[in-house]
Simulated assay, not measured.
Amino acid sequence: MKYFKPLLAAALVVSVAGCANDPNQRAKTGAAIGAVLGAVAGNQVSHARGAPIVGAVVGAIAGGAVGNYMDKQHAQLQRDLAAEAARNELQIIKLPGDALKIGIASDVSFDIDSAQLRPNALTTYAKIASVLKTYDKTVIHIVGHTDTTGSDAHNQSLSERRASSVASYEVSQGLPAGRVREEGRGEREPLVRTGDGVKEARNRRVDIIIKPVIEGREQEAWTPPPYLGG
């Protein structure tokens, strides 16, 4: 909220300054203030670590229709990403609470120690964004993970930057920013524990968690996913 008052004040100042000379200024003022409010709401939803503004940009599903809604989305993701799944580049699974998880191997998405998406990965992420746009009554959690190579602090930063890269690309493909939350969990949630110091490649990944917004339980969709390790 720290940017809200200055932005709104700026919109009001502009509107007052132009009123005397522009008979359409009132309509323009409303549009400007609406844009400011929308930007603030979207920013709070996508980036805040506290409670977001529930329902600001996302519709809700009636409880009895949730299972069918998410099953259809699951089926479309499986169809559209069948080639990637066949190459073991990603896995799509159901989670408790009608959520879905797309687990994407980090080596497919990024070069070693890099947070820049590889060009070959862009088509895959574009396919994902296309489906997520169609099924718009969901909140998208993008979670980055690393293996244990390097320090805890380095791995945490890398996982955050990778999650941010994926989130930014999905938004660039038309996925509303207000539906997206991102976080990095570093090396804390491995899929595979070797116990012998081996740096297991499968632990390097990006998880995309798709949570339905259910009528009367909207806040649950914004809650970060639980433990995603093995």
Rank of each mutant, 00 (worst) to 15 (best):
M1I: 15
Y3T: 14
Y3N: 09
F4Y: 03
K5S: 13
L8N: 09
A9W: 12
V14C: 10
G18Q: 08
C19N: 15
N24R: 15
N24W: 12
Q25L: 12
I33V: 15
G42K: 00
Q44L: 14
V54L: 10
G55R: 02
A56V: 04
V57D: 06
V57R: 02
A60G: 05
A62M: 01
V66F: 01
G67A: 00
N68H: 10
Y69P: 05
D71Q: 05
Q73G: 07
R79S: 09
L81T: 07
Q91S: 12
K94V: 03
I102L: 14
A105N: 15
A105V: 13
D113E: 13
N120D: 15
L122T: 08
I128T: 09
A129I: 06
L132N: 04
Y135M: 00
K137P: 05
K137C: 00
I142F: 06
H145M: 10
T148V: 09
T149R: 11
S159W: 02
S159Q: 08
S165M: 03
V166D: 00
A167I: 07
G174E: 01
P176F: 00
G178F: 09
R179E: 00
R179C: 05
E183G: 08
R185M: 09
E187D: 11
E187M: 11
E187H: 12
E187P: 07
L191V: 13
R193N: 15
T194G: 07
G195F: 02
K199F: 08
E200G: 08
R202D: 10
N203S: 03
E220C: 04
P224Q: 03
P224R: 06
P225E: 05
P225S: 05
G230N: 12
